[in-house]
Amino acid sequence: MKVLVLVKRVVDYNVKVRVKADGSGVDIANAKMSMNPFDEIAVEEAVRLKEAGIASEVIAVSAGIANCQETLRTALALGADRAILIETDTQLQPLAIAKLLKAICAKEQPQLVLCGKQAIDDDANQTGQMLAALMNWPQATFASNVIVANGTLTVTREIDGGLETIEITLPAVVTTDLRLNEPRYATLPNIMKSKKKPLETTTPQALGVDVTPRLTTLNMAEPPKRAAGVMVADVAELVAKLRNEGVIA
């Protein structure tokens, strides 16, 4: 079966972003960019399915500016077979991305789409569920274990009270949680090889998708800072302070 894996280019998780002085956006002109960490987990899972002989082909897809090619090359170095970039300078919101991916799914006919549960920049946690809805496919979000057998998918999901295991029919969308696997690093030979793997570019226009944003950003601001705290010398002082705050008896 064909597996599609979605990869987003985001500000690296170690970078503390700053809001521009006029509140119009964040200043990421010189920030280090990386593949969204949850997408690394998605790529790893797809590649393992290929190595297990379950996936026949792994196709990495990214939507955004031309630089997303770098993220796709990383996915290729990690083991994806080919890549598709949906290139646009328009700021994409999850609904638009889901519509773009629906168009790609119509063309590629994958049996499984793997993506991250959440992009660490917009923290939306929407795209996979939206794609599943538009395709009328089942979904298994926040996956910490995935088994494919006999045309069904058995997925263990991280939920608020613990874990649950569900069985869903294929084709389906799975979104990854942190404990699904530990992604590998790209080796130098594989990075070299990835440069020769096919990377096709398309556009929202070519796919016939209107990507006009539905949500308008009015402002971005940094949250209020907490008042500076104090260091206490020992346990006795800590207990006295906490009693004074009224948070312990």
Binding site: V11, V26, L215, L218, M220, E222, P223
Partner: peptide
């Protein structure tokens, strides 16, 4: 957004 480092006002 951005792990709580930014508060976004959207319409």
């Amino acid at each position: 957004i951005y792990a709580g480092n930014v508060l976004l006002t959207v319409q």
